[in-house]
């Protein structure tokens, strides 16, 4: 399981963005484009040891909040 802070740090690293917060999304982070999103999915897959394999909703989850919600729904996020 990941903490919220770990997920945010992961997204920041995946996007090579200067700052990522809970309110970050593809709408307000220039680096969050289609390739950036692939990086996020790839790193989440590694960080969860393949745990996101069936979370198809993540393909369209273009914000930190959406990602956190999906991970929480499958008990991949520590409360």
């Amino acid at each position: 399981m990941l903490t919220k802070e770990q997920v945010i740090a992961l997204i920041k690293e995946a996007l090579e963005a200067e700052a990522i917060t809970e309110s970050s999304s593809a709408d307000n982070v220039p680096e969050w484009d289609s390739l950036g999103h692939l990086n996020i999915l790839s790193m989440l897959d590694t960080a969860t040891n393949g745990g996101i394999a069936d979370l198809t909703d993540l393909a369209k989850a273009n914000s930190v909040n959406k990602i956190l919600a999906i991970l929480a729904s499958r008990s991949l996020l520590m409360r």
Binding site: H37, L38, I52, A53, D54, L58, K60
Partner: peptide, 16 residues
């Protein structure tokens, strides 16, 4: 090509 959906498909089906 919806890259994200195709990647999720790959991660889901191929290892299994």
């Amino acid at each position: 090509m919806d890259g994200a959906k195709v990647l999720m498909f790959t991660l889901s089906k191929v290892p299994a």
